[in-house]
């Protein structure tokens, strides 16, 4: 009799597999569950949006690796010669320039999806709890993910304005000099350090979270995932934060 438990409920959806128009219609609408395809499953379903969120997040993480590796040249004691060459390569190389466009789209999609999901989720508990002990059930970094996201975005705007915009559009003669002068400013440097701390929290949640969303976080990979995650949330922000501190104390 146990097998009898799993009896299918009556299905009333009409099979529209052979109808071309229905197929096209379902491509743009999400009303037919059985017709879910790549287009609507990733752009309209909650799980699909989260997957896009995690993919863009990991793409942005890969950019951090390249960025921190290049910036390490700042520590070379050659008065910025190597760093200058590197920044010139970054602004002239066609391959880098085309990736830059992808990066903008990556950021835009990640930010848009974050805002969109936040806006969607916040409406789903119209009456809140009088007492709600989320703090004892969820870790700190996951609870402040939206706060860190907003701060990292503000940082990004400031950062791009100071270096990228200045170098690319206002024709700053030396990026190294720009870095040196900016980081010798107390407020600016400590703003950077604070931003890196918040980026660290953002990545501490975001990096492992991306793998959970991609279905790759399981017992088998947990150790390696935690190790790689440590590089992203601890080592990379630490290296970035050490740059303003280096210039601040060198002056």
């Amino acid at each position: 009799m146990i097998g009898e438990v799993f009896i299918s409920p009556p299905k009333n959806n009409i099979n529209t597999n052979n109808l071309v128009t229905a197929k096209i219609f379902s491509y743009f609408c999400n009303d037919k569950i059985s017709e879910m395809n790549i287009f609507n499953s990733y752009l309209t379903s909650s799980v699909g949006k989260k997957i896009l969120m995690s993919l863009t997040g990991l793409f942005l993480c890969s950019f951090l690796v390249v960025h921190v590796a290049g910036n390490l040249l700042l520590f070379k004691n050659d008065n910025g010669e190597a760093f200058e060459l590197y920044s010139q390569l970054m602004s002239t190389n066609i391959f880098i320039r085309s990736i830059e466009i992808g990066l903008f789209f990556g950021f835009a999609l990640h930010i848009y999806l974050g805002l969109h999901l936040w806006n969607q989720n916040r409406k789903l508990r119209p009456i809140g709890y009088k007492k709600y002990k989320l703090s004892e059930n969820a870790n700190f970094e996951s609870r402040i993910i939206r706060l860190t996201a907003v701060f990292v975005l503000i940082f990004l705007v400031v950062h791009l304005r100071t270096f990228w915009f200045e170098g690319r559009f206002l024709g700053a003669p030396s990026i190294f000099e720009l870095v040196k002068v900016s980081f010798q400013n107390n407020y600016y440097s400590w703003f950077y350090v604070l931003s890196m701390l918040l980026l660290s929290y953002h990545l501490k949640h975001g990096f492992q979270s991306a793998f959970q969303t991609l279905g790759l976080r399981n017992k088998k990979y947990l150790l390696i995932l935690n190790l790689v995650s440590f590089i992203f949330w601890f080592i990379i922000p630490l290296l970035f934060a050490s740059m303003p501190i280096y210039f601040l104390f060198r002056k």
Partner: peptide, 26 residues
Amino acid sequence: ERVKKLVAAMDEEMFGSCTNTYACEA
């Protein structure tokens, strides 16, 4: 088929998306 149907039904019923806080497990 099952996972697609369940996810679509979950969205339809106005449940939110997972932000991996893991409060549910706790």
